[in-house]
Design a binder for these strands. Structure first.
Ligand SMILES: [Mn+2]
Ligand SMILES: [Mn+2]
Ligand SMILES: [Mn+2]
Ligand SMILES: [Mn+2]
Lengths: 221, 221
DNA sequence: TAACTTTATTAGGCCTGTCTAAATATATAT
DNA sequence: ATATATATTTAGACAGGCCTAATAAAGTTA
């Protein structure tokens, strides 16, 4: 399946999937251009091509959504990505915060056999080291998101971190350093009106910009 | 270094290196075209490009050799290839005979960090599962070949297999099945004039075409 | 709704790696 | 040494993925 789409197409499909999964609706040319670090005309011409090949539903000036074929490819690439990240952390001594780049390349190049061997070596995990759900081997399912965002919580809430979304490596390293990683418990101390959240965890008290707090998924306890 | 050459260039350089290491001299257009499964004009234009970028020394109608820059890239890619093959066998339950394709792709896509982590996980091996030498981390050295070819030996010689060169997967699987793998001892029973060698190992007696016997490197004991 | 701003598409071009067909250089055989 | 065969290069084309500049559509504001 994935071999039907070039590496570049696979990345477009994956990114369309990720944007829509996070916030629904459809994806605009400029949004995709920004995420893929490519010019808008490049996106337009790729969307035309992906549309012709029935990977996406694209209507001029109206944004793009995935067609079934495209969603399957997106899930396949995402499964590879998240399995690779997990493998690098569990078996090759990578840090949580530094696996992304490597996985972003290798996701397109491992065989189905290697995917299987990696998944087996890991015991078929359902989540990657950031807490992101790994699509099932048959690509039929991916864990539903039942979390809230740390940035939505109010003073006094006590939560457990379930997931930290992809961000710049330095940001992730900082969060790791202050103990804001999946599995840790955090209490919301205060929420300032100008977008700063103060939190306490086992490491002490820390303040984070709301944007960062919104990229941390949690469950209230 | 390797990032200066495209994936395709890396493969040309690697294959030029492999041909010259095996038999010296220079490499012809048609030879390379055959090895790379590409048309001769494609090779010509690539050689011109590699020459302009000082990766090779190429003279029209006279074949190609590697320049220093090109040799370093070839060694780097080869190190990746052989480390990956070793890793797949040692840690991901691949069979000796089925690692080649995977490594042929991944060799271009792993980072220097991953190379290092893989090498460490393996204890910095000097040889891959086929017995081929792995270039050193600084690419300054690669084990000298001190073996003879099984196909050169005469009746009565007793040898140990040191290396089995890359061939079709099915051929390697057959050799594995009859116990012709690195580390095993073999006695040459007879050498027929029409190019058939008969051998005895712990599995019994087997005949191999001379061409195959020539791709098995051994040391006489 | 008219003017202006923002977003998206069209037009045209470039580079890489590949191909086939035609031309030419080199090697081989009579 | 000439003719023939083989190997190689040149010429010209194409698809993929990207770009900038120009144009046009959609959205926003007055
Ligand atoms: Mn990618
Ligand atoms: Mn897969
Ligand atoms: Mn390769
Ligand atoms: Mn390397």
């Amino acid at each position: 399946m994935r071999e039907e789409a070039s590496e570049s197409m696979q990345d477009y499909l994956k990114n369309i999937y990720l944007i829509i999964r996070e916030r629904g609706g459809s994806v605009s040319t400029s949004e995709l251009a920004k995420k893929m670090r490519v010019s808008p005309p490049t996106v337009t011409s790729m969307l035309v091509k992906l549309g012709e090949r029935k990977f996406v539903k694209y209507e001029k000036y109206k944004g793009v959504k995935l067609a079934k074929k495209g969603e399957i490819i997106a899930l396949e690439v995402l499964r590879h990505h998240r399995l690779i990240e997990t493998y690098l952390v569990e078996h090759l001594d990578y840090d949580w915060s530094e696996v992304h780049e490597e996985a972003d390349i290798l996701e397109h190049h491992i065989s189905e056999k290697m995917e299987l061997r990696i998944a087996n070596a890991l015991g078929n995990p359902k989540f990657d080291p950031h807490g992101a759900p790994i699509p099932s081997a048959d690509l039929s399912s991916i864990a539903k998101d039942e979390t809230t965002r740390l940035g939505e919580h109010i003073s006094g809430d006590i939560v457990v971190i379930e997931r930290v979304r992809e961000r710049e490596k330095e940001e992730l390293q900082y969060l790791a350093r202050i103990g804001m990683v999946p599995g840790k418990q955090v209490e919301v101390e205060s929420v300032a009106p100008f977008g700063m959240v103060t939190l306490t965890n086992e490491n002490g008290t820390h303040s984070l910009p709301k944007e960062i707090a919104m990229s941390i998924h949690v469950k209230k306890i």
